[in-house]
């Protein structure tokens, strides 16, 4: 047989392989993109809520990205929340326990959030005060537009809060 042996350093073979890898990269990129959340899901990731609708002492639950967000309008007899207070009198936190992800309940007489799963407790600011939860309840990214809070976008108030 007189045909050429393929040497391991056959440049053309490498070029072909390399070029095929480029194509494969393109295909993988398209595949990767198909798993991203759909436009509708992304659009639902931004929720507007009018804070003034909440009465003093009242708790409202807003659904945001599938999670409950607690909006509590605090009264003077509740804890002061310094750096966790939104528009002076509101607590806005993701209602998912920082321990293992259960949804705490608001107990109006004790003025705490109590987690049904392992007895964790959070005060009216969402700060963990008892039990296994390691951290305060999370504050979702937000932006204030007058009395309306936009969940899912970040505004200066949120950035300041995250820094402090």
């Amino acid at each position: 047989m007189a045909e050429e042996k393929v040497s391991r350093r056959d440049f053309l073979l490498y070029a072909m392989g390399g070029w095929a890898a480029v194509g494969l990269g393109g295909v993988l990129y398209a595949m990767y993109k198909t798993w991203e959340p759909l436009p509708e899901v992304k659009a639902a990731g931004i929720v507007r809520f009018d804070l003034s609708k909440v009465q003093p002492g009242q708790l409202k639950v807003v659904q945001w990205r599938g999670k409950p967000v607690f909006v509590l309008r605090r009264t003077p007899d509740m804890d002061k929340c310094d750096n966790r207070s939104i528009a002076n009198e509101y607590t806005v936190v993701v209602g998912i326990c920082t321990h293992l992800g259960c949804i705490p309940n608001w107990e109006p007489d004790k003025k705490i959030f109590k987690c049904p799963c392992h007895g964790g407790e959070f005060n009216a600011c969402g700060v963990n005060i008892f039990g296994p939860p390691p951290r305060p309840l999370e504050i979702p990214p937000f932006k204030l537009e007058g009395t309306t809070i936009v969940l899912g976008e970040t505004g200066p108030e949120y950035e300041k809060m995250m820094k402090g």
Binding site: A2, E3, E4, L12, L13, A15, M16
Partner: peptide
């Protein structure tokens, strides 16, 4: 890709 594969084919088949 056609260019590359053609060149390689040419090379392999040179002596056939």
């Amino acid at each position: 890709m056609i260019g590359l594969t053609y060149a390689w084919k040419k090379k392999i088949w040179k002596n056939i």
